[in-house]
Amino acid sequence: MQAIWKGSVSFGLVTIPVKVYAATQEKDVAFRQVHAADGGRIRYRRFCEVDGEEVAYSDIAKGYELPDGEMAVLTAEDMADLPLPTRHVVEVLEFVPAEEIDPIYVSRSYYLQADGPAAKPYVLLRDALRRTGQTALVKVALRNREALAMLRPKGDVLVLQTMLWPDEVRDASFAAPASEVEVRPQEVAMAESYIQTLETSFDPDRYHDEYRAALEVVLEAKATGHEVEAPATAAPAKGEVVDLMAALQASVDEARRQRGESAGGGAGRTAGSAAKAAKPAKSTKKAPAKKTAAKKTATKKATAKKTTTKKAAKKPAAKTAKTPARKSA
């Protein structure tokens, strides 16, 4: 694999020579533009509008139109000589917690390889970032463009991920739902139950590009002259979902079925319990009244007992004396 950049990481007074390699590659089925009638290739040619001559790609430069209409031409040499301090140095600006960086800022990822005798400071920075849970915010100039980036450990290597500048991320307020939309607690509880049903650990090997696989099947069939069998597809949903609770319960049951579990089992009970817990208690206000009534009843009994005791004290002593004799008998 060929390195796309070579320089060093400036880590305080420590310099780490590194080579940068692209960490990702997009895989897709490559198509060519052809004439539909006979399959002939479509070619594009580049012509200069001044002299009408065809221009080779190697003779094309970058041009910037000035306000007066003149064109400022920048050659490859001009671009290479841009006065950027980060042209050959990854400059560490500061360290921030990894979870504070919104993934929307991430653009491209690159692997950093220690160059020459830089293995020890490379490992030092990698392990220090891992132990502290911090991410290094850096500046670097890649492909003739300075970018903000973050430097973080991934396994045994350091990964450089270029980021968008703040003014390159569009404001999202236009996409927010209207503030008057209300969701019932029972619906939230059921949605949480569905999330819990599909909760698992991330394993990228479980996912595959089915679109690319389907294209390869079609191309193979075209090459061999076979017909392609169309797979059975689910019928599209009609209209709006009116009963959110029913739709969410059906989603939970379907998710459990796909995982080999019985539908309407634990997940349904969990959702029902959560939804029940989310409902306000109806008898909360009546409780004090019952307590008061019980207290009054107890007071009446205590009063009646006291009255009976007083009456018993006023009776003749003879009758009182008979009581122990009867008990002895």
Score class of each variant (00 low, 15 high):
residue 235 A to F: 11
residue 213 A to T: 15
residue 308 T to H: 06
residue 254 E to M: 12
residue 258 Q to T: 11
residue 78 D to P: 02
residue 288 P to T: 14
residue 281 A to Y: 07
residue 5 W to C: 02
residue 99 E to H: 12
residue 283 S to K: 15
residue 228 V to H: 06
residue 300 K to C: 05
residue 252 V to L: 06
residue 196 Q to V: 09
residue 123 V to H: 14
residue 280 P to D: 04
residue 50 V to N: 08
residue 81 D to Y: 04
residue 164 L to W: 08
residue 285 K to F: 00
residue 164 L to T: 11
residue 11 F to N: 03
residue 129 L to G: 01
residue 245 M to S: 13
residue 205 D to W: 15
residue 29 V to G: 08
residue 324 P to L: 14
residue 298 A to H: 12
residue 66 L to N: 09
residue 207 Y to C: 08
residue 56 A to E: 11
residue 325 A to G: 09
residue 38 D to F: 05
residue 317 A to H: 13
residue 229 E to A: 09
residue 73 V to Q: 05
residue 147 A to E: 13
residue 235 A to H: 13
residue 216 E to Q: 15
residue 121 P to M: 09
residue 251 S to R: 10
residue 222 K to S: 01
residue 131 R to L: 02
residue 85 P to F: 03
residue 25 Q to D: 09
residue 67 P to E: 06
residue 153 P to I: 01
residue 57 Y to L: 14
residue 52 G to E: 04
residue 322 K to R: 15
residue 307 T to K: 15
residue 40 G to A: 15
residue 197 T to V: 11
residue 97 P to Q: 03
residue 41 R to V: 04
residue 27 K to Q: 13
residue 158 L to C: 03
residue 259 R to I: 10
residue 57 Y to A: 11
residue 288 P to S: 14
residue 265 G to P: 00
residue 144 N to I: 05
residue 102 D to G: 06
residue 4 I to R: 07
residue 41 R to M: 06
residue 155 G to R: 10
residue 79 M to G: 05
residue 264 G to A: 03
residue 99 E to P: 02
residue 199 E to A: 07
residue 115 D to R: 12
residue 15 T to N: 06
residue 204 P to Q: 03
residue 155 G to C: 08
residue 167 D to S: 08
residue 41 R to E: 09
residue 51 D to C: 04
residue 155 G to Y: 10
residue 255 A to V: 05
residue 12 G to Q: 06
residue 176 A to Y: 09
residue 207 Y to R: 11
residue 273 S to R: 14
residue 307 T to M: 15
residue 131 R to V: 05
residue 248 L to S: 00
residue 196 Q to E: 12
residue 152 R to M: 07
residue 228 V to F: 01
residue 277 A to M: 12
residue 65 E to V: 03
residue 149 A to M: 07
residue 14 V to Q: 01
residue 114 A to L: 08
residue 230 A to E: 14
residue 113 Q to V: 12
residue 124 L to N: 04
residue 228 V to S: 02
residue 127 D to K: 09
residue 83 P to R: 03
residue 287 A to S: 10
residue 126 R to Y: 00
residue 99 E to V: 06
residue 314 K to F: 07
residue 167 D to E: 08
residue 66 L to W: 00
residue 99 E to M: 08
residue 48 C to S: 08
residue 273 S to D: 11
residue 236 P to Q: 07
